[in-house]
Design a protein around this nucleic acid. Sequence first.
DNA 1: ATGATTACTTACCTATCGTTAAGTCAGATA
DNA 2: TATCTGACTTAACGATAGGTAAGTAATCAT
Lengths: 187, 187
Amino acid sequence: MPRPSDTKQRIQEVARELFAQQGVQRTSLQEIADRLAITKPALYYHFSSREELVRSIVQPIIDEEEAFLVAQEALGEVEPRALLEGYFDFHYRNRREIVLMLSELTTLADLGLIDLVLEWRGRLGKLLHGPEPTLEQAARAVIAFGGIQDCTIQFATVPQDELRRVAVDGALAALTIKPPRKPARKA
Amino acid sequence: MPRPSDTKQRIQEVARELFAQQGVQRTSLQEIADRLAITKPALYYHFSSREELVRSIVQPIIDEEEAFLVAQEALGEVEPRALLEGYFDFHYRNRREIVLMLSELTTLADLGLIDLVLEWRGRLGKLLHGPEPTLEQAARAVIAFGGIQDCTIQFATVPQDELRRVAVDGALAALTIKPPRKPARKA
DNA sequence: ATGATTACTTACCTATCGTTAAGTCAGATA
DNA sequence: TATCTGACTTAACGATAGGTAAGTAATCAT
């Protein structure tokens, strides 16, 4: 049986599935091994530790989000709708991994996920409202981006195009700030 | 040292703190006991199991959210702003516990939290848009309520009144649905 | 045919965790 | 003074999980 094998990929597939189903912490190496009809130490041939297996699944998502942000920041001027749509597509594509990351933030603390998520939200807000947004602007950004994230998780079965429309529309609506007072009727 | 002791409350305080800091799953009974300078089995005098300790912290929040929903549903007609403000206040008051519940959904699966959260979102949506909302309406509700939740977590240090204003304004903005086409100028 | 390499298996170790049984001891009760 | 109860401690158990050491069968290069 030796020589090139796709076992490493198959381990990751099974891990992704079990992690999504029952959580990272509640999934043991034994369970992953059983599902593949191999032994636990076989996993150690492909991954040096449990943590490395977890990281191999989560890290690509982190890298992709990071790359997305860097690309948008390099653009200089951002068009809100395009930014939100890009953000949506990224989250829709990786919704399985993202939900497991978000619903186990503390478990994955070793990866520094908590700080990363907070940092990303800050950077996203600055893309929309400049380097020093007001509290109101920051809140709107959190609602908009968080809302898109929630939509990809909550409505995971809705087709991408349809969901993108309603999610991005909703996020844009959340961003529109009405002038503070003065009804300004029939302006 | 016998006779009335406040140890049970002190255990819960320490547990709340450690759970919030490093997660429920990553906090062992040993750690809680050490922090209180008592022994691990002493915890079992006050709580019949680890799960019961966790539940004693999480369950009141669940009950409160349930009660909030029941009360709102009983009202018949709901005013969106009032609903959102009530929702905000509940989440602001319990933000520490709520963040630990949300960031460990899978770990707390025994409590049926995942299904509960999904159910709550559905009921909140129906409060705003009736028993059978469109996808667009459902998405807006998810963005609005999720956004309020995110705000209480993200801006945990902002005073309650100030944050409530911006969070609820943002949520309301997310709820306003523009007519699909036809600019309908000067209607 | 031989040696090296790949891809594992068998067997085992150890640490930790939740949990329990049994004992201790200060103070309230009688 | 004797007894009972509340509030623990000491000691230990069983399960499980991550991890390792050593061996083995199949394949490739030489």
